[in-house]
Nucleic acid binder design. Structure first.
Lengths: 147, 147
DNA sequence: CAGGATCCCGCTAGATACTG
DNA sequence: CAGTATCTAGCGGGATCCTG
């Protein structure tokens, strides 16, 4: 009996790998940005959301209240909205400002860091708009071939 | 009793929203790219993986066997590796080539589409390397303030 | 108004065992 | 070698109720 079984070796490799992934900046960013609501919230705070009829200078950051965000991002639960906003604040991507009116007023706004992140989002959006239909074509093609 | 309760309205809004998200190219790309193993597989096939000691021209795509990928991406289960490779093939991002030797040989290689996607990945990587420590600083700062 | 606290459910990653 | 099949536990996320 060896001192370490194959299963143990794999388990050890996995631990090392998880540690590597946890420390990898790109992985962290990917996890952050791919969160279901992050992209939408950033877009909304960047005034790039849908339902905008007036003329809006693109990229012009905008402060929004909790309830306004909630309305624009129809479909998000309060839990996820709050949770996501908290984590974004924690990461320094948005600011949370409490005005002690009655009832209390809370506004959220993009920081410079959050704003710079939008450039990355734009890159993603650009690739998606250019190539996603091609991907979709491959996909349906693959599916019909397999039946 | 109204014809539609508030809960029903919210449920309907959610359905609409889910449909919107499902059809949104950026969302689809984000889901695809943020998959736990996709970025690693793309990086490996692009010869940008770790454990490379020799001189490698960056961006030079490279065909790799299943077992080689499995070794380089220590920590991935066969199930996830196979599943991820299949979905990448389905999307036209990698090619799967079966050579009927005995035992059978299967190689994977990036397509042009997959290669172009790496540009986006580079953008993500760049932002992460430039700003992630700042994010991390905000994060620990936030955590100590809250205690 | 802007959340906090709970309960709960579906999905999926991973471990294990088997195969052409 | 390169997978497939099956089972299960853990957890993200939504629904619901409650509060300063």
């Amino acid at each position: 009996m060896p001192t370490m079984t194959a299963a143990q070796k794999r388990a050890e490799a996995k631990v090392e790998y998880d540690a590597f992934l946890a420390g990898c900046p790109s992985r962290q960013l990917l996890d952050r940005v791919s969160d279901k609501w992050v992209a939408l919230i950033l877009a909304a705070l960047g005034s790039n959301g849908p339902h905008r009829t007036g003329v809006v200078s693109a990229g012009e950051p905008r402060a929004m209240r909790y309830s306004e965000l909630s309305r624009r991002l129809a479909g998000v639960s309060q839990k996820m909205l709050t949770q996501t906003l908290r984590s974004l604040e924690r990461d320094g991507l948005v600011t949370r400002t409490v005005t002690p009116t009655v009832p209390v007023t809370v506004t959220y706004e993009l920081t410079d860091l959050g704003l710079s992140l939008q450039d990355v989002m734009r890159g993603i959006k650009a690739w998606a708009e250019q190539h996603m239909n091609e991907v979709l074509a491959h996909r349906s093609d693959y599916d019909t071939r397999v039946d």
